[in-house]
Write a protein that binds this DNA or RNA. Structure first.
Length: 495
RNA sequence: GGCGCGGUACCCAAGUGGUAAGGGAGAGGUCUGCAAAACCUUUAUGCGUCGGUUCGAUUCCGACCCGCGCCUCCA
């Protein structure tokens, strides 16, 4: 695997330093609200990375944090009159449900900030012992940036002008330098707090990731991932804290996913231009299409989200699913016994696999990897139409599809299930009015019900009662069901 | 202002110093009771603009124009 490293600014080979498993840490969500699909782009691209690593033969030990305490959480929980645990529980659950709907593999370790306070306190104490952390008048603790000359090496910023003890201005009187960042925040009256050796308070955001990543992955590990916005200051601060404490290289390889844009602007809560996964499912878009859209454009490219793009990916996924069904569901003729060796189709499938793997290994070029698969699909379809596809070709082609799906994970159709799940959720939350009418129409439409209608229509067709057959077809269409008539019989699928 | 990224067909988008992948849409066709679906074929003498290097540049260099991100909470 060759992957761009933000720290060096180059594409570099990525191999586990212990020769066994890639140890990676990915910054997870702050659970104060539902995630939007911009957030999920990052988690999906990290998922692509871990799936690709495994496909290429490297085991992965992946740790993700959940920030379940921060200023927003404390503020929102207080406003809602509940404790922070109760407040965040709902969003945490929703986050993991969303990941599941998007086929994101769960990390090996999920680390919650509130369950690691002692680890963070110890790390701050370690910094305090070197006078790198200092206590301000209000009881907060800060990191003395002047003591870490390499500060800025990740984000390529020049902080050489920062000198210790240079008090900046009136607003920041409690810090020694304006750039110094909080490690531990003293509580305001009535705020949620932990009583610790540092005094009462709560951890800063940055120390959380340093402490938890090193607890599970060691002082020095392979890869750290996150959205591009985290590069500065979050990841820069993590490096400063960790390397000051251990005097070792914190992380070798930094992986940053670029932003999702909408209407040419970044998708963000603060901009108010965001869509949650649930918004889109209620509008009738499929989870698989959303996954496909968010991973098909390589992670180093900004991706402009549009509904047109989403609709296009829905069809693209459908094309692949239909192809797989065709491969599996058709009785293909046997090849003449005298034809020895690999067939042209088998060779194409093998070349496709090679191209696919090479594209992924080349800085996760998902666009090229995907293109290789579509090329194979078209080639095989054309041959099959011309009667040039045989039973003995099937295994190799299906193997290429399986390989594709080990990273893309869109071929298994769980879409209706997740749409149903989201409708149930919307009902509980009183948000059913946000669902599109055609989505609401699918409620209560079970496979059994559809199957019965399809069979009834087949009977009508056999009787050449086309009026009745067409009526049933219309009825099914109203429930969002498309029919596909063929010699082998009638297949149906959800729009 | 500093740092970084990008401008490729109607839309999304890959890519290479030697003549433009893939997906969607459009057009044509095969199939079909009719449809739909499915499948096939087809669609950029051109890769922001202007110079330069080169036998040859979309690909390298320079300038310029435009867009986006970070520099503050943010995936």
């Amino acid at each position: 695997m060759h992957l761009y490293n933000t720290l060096s600014g180059r594409v570099e080979e990525l191999t586990p330093m212990d020769g066994k498993a890639l140890r990676m840490y990915a910054c997870g969500p702050t659970v104060y609200d539902y995630g939007h699909i911009g957030n999920f782009r990052t988690f999906l691209q990290v998922d692509v990375l871990r799936r690709a690593m495994r496909l290429l033969g490297t085991e992965v030990r992946h740790v993700m944090n959940v920030t379940d305490v921060d200023d927003k959480i404390i503020r929102n929980a207080a406003a809602a009159g509940v404790g922070i645990e109760e407040y965040t529980r709902k969003y945490q659950e929703a986050f993991f449900e969303d990941l599941k709907a998007l086929e994101v593999e769960p990390p090996e370790v999920i680390a919650r900030a509130t369950e690691h306070i002692p680890t963070m306190v110890r790390l701050i104490e370690k910094l305090a012992a070197q006078d790198i952390a200092y206590r301000a008048e209000d009881g907060s603790w800060y990191f003395r940036i002047a003591r870490f000359p390499e500060y800025g090496k990740l984000s390529k910023k020049d902080f050489s002008g920062i000198t210790d003890g240079a008090r900046i201005d009136l607003d920041e009187y409690e810090k020694d330098s304006a750039r110094d960042f909080a490690l531990w925040k003293a509580p305001k009256p009535g705020e949620h707090r932990w009583e610790t050796e540092l005094g009462p308070g709560r951890p800063g955001w940055h120390i959380e990731c340093s402490a938890m990543s090193m607890e599970y992955l060691g002082d020095s590990f392979d890869l750290h991932a996150g959205g591009e916005d985290l590069m500065f200051p979050h990841h820069e601060n993590e490096i400063a804290q960790s390397e000051s404490a251990t005097h070792r290289t914190f992380v070798r390889h930094w992986f940053h996913v670029r932003f999702l844009l909408v209407d040419g602007r970044k998708m963000a809560k603060s901009e108010g231009n965001f869509y949650t996964l649930r918004d889109l499912l209620l509008r009738g878009y499929k989870a698989s299409a959303i996954r496909m859209l968010l991973i098909a454009v390589p992670y180093r490219q900004q991706l402009n989200f549009t509904f047109e793009g989403l609709a296009a990916e829905t069809i693209a996924v459908e094309r692949l699913r239909t192809f797989r069904e065709r491969m599996e569901g058709t009785k293909w003729p046997a090849r003449a016994a005298m034809d020895g060796g690999a067939s042209e189709i088998q060779n194409v499938a093998r070349e496709t696999k090679a191209k696919y793997l090479a594209a992924l290994a080349d800085d996760l070029n998902t666009a090229e990897a995907r293109a290789a698969i579509f090329e194979m699909v078209r080639f095989v379809n054309a041959r099959a139409d011309a009667g040039g596809f045989f039973e003995s070709d099937k295994a190799e082609v299906l193997e290429a599809l399986r390989m594709f799906d080990r990273v893309f994970a869109v071929l298994e159709d769980h879409d209706a299930e997740w749409t149903r799940f989201t409708l149930d959720w919307a009902e509980r939350e009183g948000k059913l009015d946000q669902a599109a009418p055609e989505v609401l129409a699918t409620r209560g439409v079970t496979d059994e019900k559809i199957q019965a209608l399809v069979e009834e229509r087949d009977g009508a067709k056999r009787r050449r009662d086309f009026k009745r057959a067409d009526a049933i077809r219309n009825e099914l269409a109203g429930m969002g069901i498309l029919l596909e008539d063929s010699k082998e019989g009638t297949r149906w699928k959800r729009k």
